[in-house]
């Protein structure tokens, strides 16, 4: 088996054993239950509220777990010196990083699958008619989490502080959802106050366009506003974005002296 795969599986098992991961899932269970209570308040719209709360929750829990792992995994191994045990073997640093990221992908995917299974069960019990758009929305959520996790991994190596990496990642996550609005703002006011808008414009071209994957928020959009699910371009965009930041993280990691 390739060292990348071994590292990925090892990372996955480690994450599954991690107390933080179990706590995230337990918390998700509690919040799913709370969303059922909230759904009761929505009367006729109970199923819609359950659907939206569930998908939102899956995303948030997946994000918290993945970003936390991405920001801490390498730094923790550097701190505890475990990284030496791996790097003294014939595994180069890029492969080590890739393996860790794949492990994180598996962990986030598994957690999201468990949560979505519970969510689907609740929805079906409440009389929801299954729609394939749910699966597409889930794919979008997963890709958003991966893109953000790759950024977190890069930022952790750049800042060498998990807390800073986490904070910056969450800011970028939020900005990534405001991207269409930021670009609209730049278009509207860019000609009058070009100097003020210039940094915002620059940022808008660097941060990930998370609204691109946000099908969860467009499940019932009118036909003239919605388009088909561009899964191919989602995968391409997410793949390229992750590749860019993982490559940059690898550059930083190769330069690190232990």
């Amino acid at each position: 088996m390739s060292p990348v795969l071994v590292l990925a599986l090892n990372s996955w098992v480690e994450n599954l054993r991690n107390r933080f991961f179990a706590l995230t899932l337990a918390f998700a269970g509690v919040v799913l239950y709370l969303s059922m209570l909230l759904g009761l308040l929505a009367c006729d719209q109970e199923v819609r509220v359950l659907l939206d709360f569930g998908l939102g929750l899956i995303e948030l829990m997946g994000l918290v777990g993945a970003v936390y792992c991405a920001a801490t995994v390498v730094l923790r191994e550097m701190e505890t010196k475990t990284v030496y045990m791996i790097l003294t073997r014939p595994v180069d640093r890029t492969r080590y990083l890739l393996g860790r990221f794949l492990g994180l992908m598996l962990s986030a995917g598994a957690a999201m699958l468990i949560m979505s299974a519970a969510h689907l069960m609740i929805l079906l019990l409440k009389g929801w008619d299954f729609r394939t758009v749910y699966l597409w929305a889930l794919l979008g959520v997963f890709l958003k989490v991966l893109v953000t996790a790759s950024l977190a991994m890069f930022l952790a190596l750049l800042a060498t502080s998990a807390l800073s990496a986490l904070s910056i990642t969450m800011i970028l996550w939020s900005l990534g959802h405001f991207l269409p609005e930021i670009r609209l703002m730049v278009r509207r006011f860019g000609s009058d106050s070009a100097a003020v808008m210039a940094p915002l414009k620059a940022v808008s071209w660097v941060i990930p366009d998370l609204q691109l994957f946000n099908l969860r928020d467009k499940l019932d959009l009118p036909a003239h506003l919605s388009s088909g699910v561009p899964a191919g371009s989602w995968l391409l965009y997410a793949g390229c974005y992750c590749a860019v930041w993982l490559a940059m993280a690898a550059v930083l990691f190769r330069r690190k002296e232990f």
């Binding site: 819609r48 948030l60 959802h177 405001f178 946000n214 969860r216 928020d217």
Partner: peptide, 11 residues
């Protein structure tokens, strides 16, 4: 909005 959850906000 910042979390990309407009539908949830409308709910």
């Amino acid at each position: 909005f910042g979390m990309g959850m407009r539908r949830l906000a409308s709910d």
